[in-house]
Design a protein around this nucleic acid. Structure first.
Lengths: 339, 339
DNA sequence: AGACTGCTTGCACGCACGTGCAACAAACGG
DNA sequence: CCGTTTGTTGCACGTGCGTGCAAGCAGTCT
């Protein structure tokens, strides 16, 4: 229990010589106050350094204005970029972001989620590969709106934002074929995220449709190190692949580094590589990775738009699933013509 | 105004056949409840899916449990790593993190900060180069505890956590000298952050103490692109430097890429490079950058420790400034002996 | 003048919770 | 058996705020 330090509406009212209701109304858009009292209240509030207490307001309105972001692997380039965009747009919409980190797998995650519910968050955005379905259940049961990004979840209610992961496989395959590649490989992690698996399935299916085979290799956690390991696995064979689609840019970076520096493979002359996400490092001149760009800004804006829209018209609307296209950005890790 | 959906303590009380006070007490550590009623309350709460409303609790206790993180450039490797650690440790301490993104310079920052105050955050952690002093003033005036990371700010009250930025310059200089370098350069951005300028000053001063001169170049925002530009500036001269200390790993990555791929410079044979931060990419085999590691975990734990300590013993304590050492991690961008 | 409208304002209640105070029961010592 | 202590419980009030309701007040119309 800290000592009192904030000024209350009561004090502002006394200083302005009006009732507390008048103060409340001047800070409530659409309420009926005369221009004069409004002016006096604002002046008194300024002098005293008054700020509306949103804890109390949230109590009354049954609506806290808090949106909870449930994130794992924040320190990853793709996640941090998405987080950046989301927080920016939420702020613009007058919301405030509460952050929950699900990196640690012990009880702290559950505790943190409990916290979010206790603070009566209006909504949650889950950008986390966490396979735990109970987490979404809990959010929904407590009346939160829910946005799932790059996750599959069949239960109704939440908004799902996904990419055309499987279709991307087909597009990159034609690029590989056009470059004259015919020994294909797919480098994946063992995370088993729907988006990751979607990319794999799409690529394999597209290859099979052309009568080609794909060597699929999976290892560890979706990061740079796993990419290096995958390179070792895929390049220590008699017949090396000449085209590798990595499920993620981070994997691709690790893969390229190991391929070049440890196996002396020349990219893209001997080996074509593609990634997914278009993280910043993909454009660095050590990589120049051609990859699929996640439309981060659009993902964020769609999520925020949906969250704030249902604030006005309360009914559960029609659109519950959005599928966005990942645009292929061409750099130099795939050659243009046959070699 | 959303329709009511959460269960209140009243409902739990009715179901358990006790008074509302009893419910309140079972969820308040240290309150006096008999084992039996406690059991019945917990059971009823479980059945109804009850969660204590922290908005109301915060209202009563004058203490919200919210810690506000004021961050710019979240999508940067160093910042996101620090953010990760901070949120994790805050969660562990039973706090909840509210996120404010100060990337955009328009009014949205002020609006967001207002939000934080309106939610009566107990404390704020500022990890942002934002030079705006009014922001810290505002936090302090509203009774928040304040932690400043890598910023200088002379006003009393907040905890300041800094690194030995200037001393690092001396240490890396001896490494350069030992490698036989004598044409020194420092690559900086124009951000003018205290930590950045501290590294520059320390390096230049240490060189001068040995009677050596340093070419200092500054450009743009502290990122990869600026590093490339700095490389162009520093390498298109007759007498190229043979040792460059980059104020940041991101700058160093850009610098190295441009130096190698556009100027054909061999690192570390012709040119030694050092950075600061020890971001993940510094260890990637395309860079193998020797650099100073920010003790991210310790920064976070010190911050959280200080925040929670003052919760118990309320007086403004003694320690207000912590200075941590950035450890030099050796990789391969500086050669060991003279060439 | 009187009735009526439209706008503003204060009162009082409610939101979900914590907590001091007194009532009460049980246990205990004499 | 009675006085005292200890532990538990309910009542009532307070936290800062939004809002329905009715009173007040000025202006307009009949």
């Amino acid at each position: 229990m800290r000592s009192k330090i904030f000024v209350s509406a009561q004090e502002v009212a006394e200083r302005a010589g009006v009732s507390r209701s008048a103060v409340s109304r001047t800070f409530t858009p659409g309420a009926s106050v005369s221009a004069e009292t409004r002016e006096r209240v604002l002046h008194a509030a300024e002098e005293l350094g008054y700020h509306v207490n949103h804890l109390a307001r949230g109590l009354m309105r049954n609506e806290s204005g808090i949106v909870c972001l449930i994130v794992s692997e924040v320190a990853t380039p793709y996640r941090s970029a998405l987080l950046r965009e989301l927080t920016l747009q939420l702020q613009n919409a007058g919301k405030v972001a509460m952050f929950i980190n699900t990196d640690r797998s012990d009880g702290s995650v559950d505790r943190a989620l409990q916290q979010a519910i206790r603070y009566r968050a209006d909504a949650s955005v889950i950008l986390s590969g966490l396979p735990d379905k109970s987490i979404t259940q809990l959010c929904l049961r407590n009346g939160q709106r829910l946005v799932l990004i790059n996750r599959d979840d069949d239960q109704p209610g939440p908004l799902r934002i996904n990419l055309d992961d499987d279709e991307a496989g087909g597009r990159i395959l034609t690029a590989f074929v056009r470059a004259g590649c015919h020994r294909l490989a797919f480098a994946n992690s063992e995370a088993g995220t729907p988006s990751l698996m979607g990319r794999e399935r799409g690529f394999v299916a597209a290859a099979r449709a052309l009568g080609m085979d794909v060597t699929v290799e999976r290892h560890g956690w979706t990061g740079y190190e796993a990419g290096r390991v995958l390179a070792h696995r895929l390049l220590t064979v008699k017949e090396r692949p000449d085209a590798v689609f990595c499920a993620t840019d981070l994997l691709a970076c690790g893969f390229m580094d190991a391929a070049r520096h440890q196996f002396g493979v020349s990219i893209p002359d001997e080996l074509c590589v593609a990634g997914f996400d278009d993280i910043e490092q993909a454009s660095w001149s050590s990589y120049e990775l051609t990859t699929f760009a996640q439309p981060v800004a659009e993902i964020a804006s769609r999520a925020v738009e949906w969250l704030t829209k249902f604030e006005r018209e309360d009914g559960q609307g029609e659109v519950q699933s959005i599928r966005l296209r990942a645009e292929l950005v061409w750099r130099k890790s795939i050659r243009a013509r046959k070699s």
